[in-house]
Design a protein around this nucleic acid. Sequence first.
DNA 1: AGTTATGTATAAGAATCTTATGTATATTTG
DNA 2: CAAATATACATAAGATTCTTATACATAACT
Lengths: 111, 111
Amino acid sequence: MKNSQLYKGSLNTIIMKLLEENGKMYGYEITQKVKAITQGELNITEGALYPALHKLEAEGILDVEIEKVDNRMRKYYKLTEAGTKETVNRLAELEDFIRTMQSLVNPKLEF
Amino acid sequence: MKNSQLYKGSLNTIIMKLLEENGKMYGYEITQKVKAITQGELNITEGALYPALHKLEAEGILDVEIEKVDNRMRKYYKLTEAGTKETVNRLAELEDFIRTMQSLVNPKLEF
DNA sequence: AGTTATGTATAAGAATCTTATGTATATTTG
DNA sequence: CAAATATACATAAGATTCTTATACATAACT
């Protein structure tokens, strides 16, 4: 998704957070949204996104709903009830992670 | 290194930052230092650490120096000149990454 | 007419990490 | 004193995640 290896492992959290915020989204929409929010910093590739979405669906985190718009297929994903709960955990983990990395990189400061 | 997948890809940056700060360190020392700094949050496994050190050495980022202390072997690693330069880049990448993740998770706030 | 944008999908390979195992010495604990 | 824990390095098999390439299809722009 980026030249930097750091983004590895963060895709699921990103997807879940966006869905929590926007209710339902389709794959292509997610890629564009992330690109916009990060001002081009982060480009999610399809090869990473679609398998991730399928896996989250298989795990019961996401529900899917197919629509046809302008004669093109769209698969809208939204969080299940379990997915909504899990998102809370994932976001807490992300905050812990960021705090931990800050403490490693900036050991002098308090956060 | 942790139950959370988020730490994937951050090991190299962590190693390089610690070596930048402490001059030279050996593997086991790194694992203990990280555990201490993060108050147990992050435990680097040997299966991740040693291959990472070997690779950084092969890439010319690290130099190695073997010592024998208390009849036990220690391999001290330190940044090469190129490694020191690269560390600057990696830390900048980490800050960008953290900022980007913040903007995704906390889109209302400014950073 | 050809390129770009929209939209989803998968497969091969790379990279990173987990888990398990192996070797060896020193120290602590029951 | 024997056993467990700590110190110290190493690798191999497998899991997971991602990149890169490819594939299909329609819409819009140039």
